[in-house]
């Protein structure tokens, strides 16, 4: 109430400080070029849903009213899937965050007739809303079912529209949307780095979900950068790493680290019908 414009400016944190939520490594350019990816440590993820709402907030995702959930038309670019194992008293819940895997070999891309979804040279599976004609072919092609169709125009009753992020398009009816790896954040960091005449620092880009995740189960990174902390993590945890639905050959950009359960019987292979009860 009693804050003058000057004071407000003085009170604001410097923009540049915001990126540094994770200690950064040296600025390492690497020969293969950038491939944005993520390491998801299932042993850290608790299923707390913070990432889900962070993504809704960052990316102007329409409200998922009850009717939308009932119709199975709710949109969650990242969703926490919960799988049961066993029965009481040995029942176990397993959580896994599922978002677009930004496949290197993406089945959604080949089928799009208009290049509305394509692979960019930084490893992103990009969705160009303006070109999308809404065939939903890509959604059928995606084995992870992470593409969501807009069956109607989204609405934010006044004054809720004030919260919309100006960096992110509001999607109209008739098109597909999905996780973009928060491309707007990548862009901002790239612009900042360019203005400051430097390389992007490892860990400088933080998508909303990873930023929020209390347990740091989600770590965003350039998986081509062998120096990045997550790449090293994936390397060190090679015994735990796997990619989702590997046999589809989609070459996902997301590396999952297996959950550790000291009491689990281990599924010998992916298709084993083992009831893993303690």
């Amino acid at each position: 109430m009693s804050s003058s414009a000057n004071e407000a400016a003085a009170r604001a944190s410097a923009v540049s400080e915001m990126g540094r939520t994770i200690p950064t490594d040296a600025e390492v350019p690497h020969p293969e070029g950038v491939r944005w990816g993520m390491v998801v440590d299932l042993d850290r993820c608790t299923g707390c849903q913070a990432c889900v709402v962070a993504c809704q907030a960052e990316n102007n995702i329409a409200l998922n009213e009850e009717q939308r959930v009932l119709e199975r038309r709710a949109k969650t670019w990242i969703r926490i899937e919960r799988y049961w194992e066993g029965e009481f008293p040995n029942a176990k819940a397993r959580f896994i965050p599922v978002l677009c895997q930004h496949c290197g070999n993406a089945p959604c891309e080949t089928v799009c007739p208009v290049w509305a979804t394509y692979h960019n040279n930084e490893g992103l599976n990009v969705q160009v809303y303006n070109r999308c004609i809404g065939t939903r072919f890509c959604a059928n092609g995606c084995p992870y079912s992470v593409r969501y169709f807009n069956f109607w125009n989204p609405e934010w009753p006044e004054p809720m529209n004030n919260q919309l992020n100006p960096d992110v398009t509001v999607r109209t009816k008739g098109i597909i949307e999905k996780c973009t790896f928060c491309v707007q954040r990548i862009n901002r960091v790239q612009v900042t780095a360019k203005t400051e005449g430097r390389e992007i620092r490892s860990g400088e880009v933080q998508p909303a979900c990873a930023q929020s995740c209390p347990t740091s189960a989600l770590v965003f990174c350039d998986i081509n950068d062998p120096e990045s902390a997550p790449a090293q993590l994936a390397e060190a945890e090679a015994g735990r790493s796997y990619t989702l639905l590997e046999h589809f050959g989609t070459d996902p950009g997301i590396i999952y680290l297996k959950k550790v359960d000291p009491h689990a019987e281990i599924h010998e292979d992916e298709h084993a019908h083992a009831g893993a009860h303690a």
Binding site: V114, W115, G134, T135, G174, I175
Partner: peptide, 23 residues
């Protein structure tokens, strides 16, 4: 399709200027 009006013209290779061709 979600946006038939675009489907009609975007399945034809029309957009020479921007090099935006059908896939």
């Amino acid at each position: 399709s979600g946006r038939p009006w675009r489907t009609m013209y975007w399945t034809f290779p029309y957009d020479w200027n921007r090099g935006a061709w059908p896939n």
